[in-house]
Design a binder for these strands. Structure first.
Lengths: 341, 341
DNA sequence: CTGAAAGCGCTAACAT
DNA sequence: ATGTTAGCGCTTTCAG
């Protein structure tokens, strides 16, 4: 496979003119005569000339590329945030390179190195669930590469981020449970180091308080957000002397697993146990009953993150870190309404 | 944001030695004294030196990058194929750039241009469902960029590809329906231009024949693979004077939509209508009843496609196009077994 | 053991 | 209106 991409030089030699003339003709530079310009452009097309982007990057410093690291790429939440990022960055003339940490801190570090090596102009990251120590971000900061976190964030004092109103969302979901007749409201949480887990927990506890319900350790389960661990967390809750009559889940994947286990044990949703998920996954409407969930403005979160990053990138003055909090919306479907079904 | 990445020159000046010495020291070249080598490497670390990849690419021709175009990035099938591609290419030292056509032929063309501009060393593509004309691949072939298709393919005479045994899979699924008590087996097909649609249709028809069932136009519906159109295709089938007692769907997304509609009309799955999907999506086990589906070896398909491409890439002799057919497996769950439930 | 110089493909300032 | 030249950062002969 001798690639031998044609270069300006090749075209110049074939036409017996100089390289710069070819370069200019290809850019419709007014200095070049229309006739020559056309001749050059024709030959270029014919020979399938493509400018070598590496030469241009080298010359123009700056890759016009931004790197994105997400915990995984199959979850609709992340794909959708990525779409938002792409929409905004494309508009601004940046390319996007996506990589996945597969929820592993080690892979996250690898990805950072790779992207830094690629010389991305900036980085947008959502922490892996394993990430509990944040030293590996030093490298990014010291290298002066702009950085923005989204959803799962850290070091919010130093680094800009885009997050959901997790506290408020969890609180509202808890109130919703209470208003629709639930009294023993459980929560299946995720890894305690994640800001989303902490904030949602606080919101849940605040919600209980608002409803005048007392907090019970028993009703607080925890999982690592895999379907398997969500299943055992659910089993734990269902093994209580008095089982919960509602379960709030840290995300929809966990809610799906809980739903499956609840049904398996012969309990009815929402009659016996009401269920609410988080993030409003794509498949919330194909399960039965349809899952009530807290919808995130995913596309907009991506756009905001990209906006934050590019502002930072293009402004000469280093901006002070900002945190943008996005409003979520409780989308009420079948799984949470005790009265109806 | 003055990036000002440090260069070899910067390091050289700081140490009052030549650029080439620094370059060699960083690569542990035996010619350089251990003492100097260490000194250079320390300074490099301290200054966060990162080699400029664009300079290297420019020098060493060939991007060591391969481009992938998938119809979408949220479907588990594609994410999983991508994982397989990444696994193999990473091993071979290639990076992967992923882009999505969003099932649009126009975007597919755009993506091709972008990736070609990026000078990827090769391309792995799954056609968008809208792609019915294949001229835009000429550009790739003429530019001598190796190309491999997977799943949805075209021009198989000229271009290597990796596909599933669609014909056989559809035939087997049809037999499975018959063996478990179904007699009026319907098929919801996708856009007729896609090879997967044609092949699965043939398999379905062959299956009917094998079972001694007669082919009925009524039982053949078609959709564009969106949930909405799948729903209307299902409605059409359910509006027949004698409704089908089994439905084979072109993919799981369609099957999910069909399932929802069937349940909505008060019919039971599989008692009234048995259901089988295609590609074994991630969520097949969270729906109720769990969906019987034809599982594709997605990861392996990705690996094979990457293997095909890199062989082509690295061999000097142009290989003759090959088509690799991967074996699928019918994963029997609840939705298809009339006898049991 | 180390340095000097050429060149990858391109752009742009500086000639002509 | 077109050509010449320098230089982006790096590797790699070729010379010491």
């Amino acid at each position: 496979m001798d690639k031998m991409h044609v270069s300006l030089k090749d075209l110049a030699e074939e036409l017996h003119i100089s390289i710069s003339t070819v370069s200019r003709a290809l850019k419709n530079h007014p200095d070049i005569s229309p006739a020559l310009t056309q001749k050059v452009q024709e030959l270029a097309k014919q020979r399938h000339y493509i400018p070598n982007p590496y030469a241009i990057r080298l010359l123009k410093q700056g890759s016009k590329t931004i790197g994105v690291i997400v915990p995984d790429i199959v979850t609709h939440f992340y794909s959708s945030v990525i779409s938002g990022i792409e929409a905004y960055t494309k508009e601004k003339g940046y390319a996007v390179v996506i990589s996945s940490s597969q929820e592993s801190c080690l892979k996250e570090k690898d990805n950072i190195d790779n992207l830094l090596n690629l010389r991305v102009d900036g980085l947008i990251i959502c922490l892996s669930k394993q990430t509990t120590d944040f030293k590996h971000f030093d490298k990014i900061i010291e290298g002066n590469t702009p950085l923005v976190f989204f959803d799962r964030v850290c070091r919010t004092g130093e680094i800009s981020s885009v997050v959901a109103d997790n506290y408020e969302a969890a609180r509202m979901a808890t109130l919703h449970f209470f208003q629709t007749g639930s009294k023993r409201i459980a929560f299946i949480n995720g890894p305690g180091d994640l800001n989303i887990a902490k904030e949602r927990l606080s919101g849940y506890l605040a919600g209980l308080k608002d409803c005048g319900l007392k907090i019970s350790k028993d009703l607080l389960a925890s999982c690592d957000m895999t379907p398997e661990s969500a299943t055992s967390a659910t089993q734990k809750l269902l093994a209580l002397d008095v089982i919960p009559d509602a379960i709030l889940s840290i995300n929809d994947t966990v809610a799906f697993a809980a739903m499956k286990e609840i049904k398996k044990q012969g309990l009815k949703i929402p009659k016996d146990i009401a269920l609410v998920g988080f993030t409003d996954e794509f498949h919330a409407t194909i399960v039965e009953p349809e899952l009530t969930s807290i919808m995130h403005p995913t596309f907009e979160m991506g756009q905001e993150a990209a906006r934050l990053l590019i502002n930072q990138l293009e402004s000469k003055i280093p901006e002070t870190p900002r945190q943008i909090v996005m409003r979520t919306r409780l989308v009420i479907r079948e799984s949470s309404i005790k009265n109806s079904k």
